[in-house]
């Protein structure tokens, strides 16, 4: 059941995407995706936590006996999240204020302990690191797409408040996509998050179904040509 790096990446980012397919970590996904910058910030923090916790758990997988593995996972993840939280508070205070409670809440994101149990505990360090990265990037992708959708519809901008993430240089990144836009409140409020996520999942399913049909159609076409 060993997977290639390519498969790990593809599973994490697309096929088994935490946000769109596994639907794990919905609470932070829905709550912080009201703008691209917030989504990107939480996504990158979660990716860092996933990477570090997967590597740590893969390193210690031969030391830990199966019956105490879950408490050990919880401790490892809690330590990593606390360290990441303190580092963000120290070096990105603006973003830390915006994301607030959702940074410490990464600890409760089931995709972190899920990857620890399902992947890192059974695989080597390098593969676990790639898996953590891929899962995190998949989650970040979901957050950024949903954040972009809600920010454009809700405020008519993209990358608003980018200075929180990139410092003063980011101030110029803000794009006013729609000029003189009055704002669409629903997109910013929680219902907008649910509706937006639903639409994105639908789009992903359409894309997947399309890809499947094309893959299935190819041999069929070849067969018809032969018969003709």
């Amino acid at each position: 059941m060993s997977q290639s790096y390519r498969e790990i990446l593809k599973n994490g980012v697309w096929t088994q995407n935490t946000g769109f397919v596994a639907l794990l970590g919905l609470c932070p996904l829905l709550a912080t995706s009201n703008s691209v910058v917030n989504g990107l910030g939480l996504g990158l923090a979660t990716t860092l936590v996933l990477l570090l916790s997967n590597v740590a758990i893969s390193l210690i997988r031969n030391l830990v006996r199966p019956e105490v593995r879950i408490p050990v996972f919880v401790m490892v993840i809690a330590c990593v999240v606390t360290a990441v939280e303190l580092a963000m508070h120290a070096f990105l205070p603006g973003l830390y204020t915006v994301l607030g409670i959702f940074i410490p809440l990464i600890v409760t994101n089931c995709c972190v302990i899920g990857r620890a149990e399902a992947f890192a505990f059974k695989n080597g360090v390098a593969k676990s690191a790639v898996d953590g990265m891929a899962t995190g990037l998949g989650f970040t992708l979901a957050l950024v797409l949903l954040g972009a959708l809600r920010e454009i519809l809700g405020q008519g901008t993209l990358f608003g408040q980018a200075e929180l993430l990139f410092g003063e240089a980011g101030r110029g990144l803000t794009l006013h996509v729609l000029d003189d836009y009055r704002g669409f409140l629903l997109a910013i409020l929680p219902p907008g998050a649910f509706i937006g996520l639903g639409c994105l999942i639908a789009i992903k399913n359409v894309l997947d179904a399309h890809a499947k049909r094309r893959a299935a159609a190819k041999p069929a076409v070849a067969l018809q040509e032969v018969q003709a």
Partner: peptide, 25 residues
């Protein structure tokens, strides 16, 4: 013993991060 060991290592890691970021925060 395993749990105690990990708890100790974890506490040390968090304590080190805390002291090294305290002043910056």
């Amino acid at each position: 013993l395993i749990l105690t060991g990990f708890a100790t290592v974890g506490t040390v890691l968090v304590a080190v991060t805390y002291t090294s970021t305290k002043d910056i925060i």
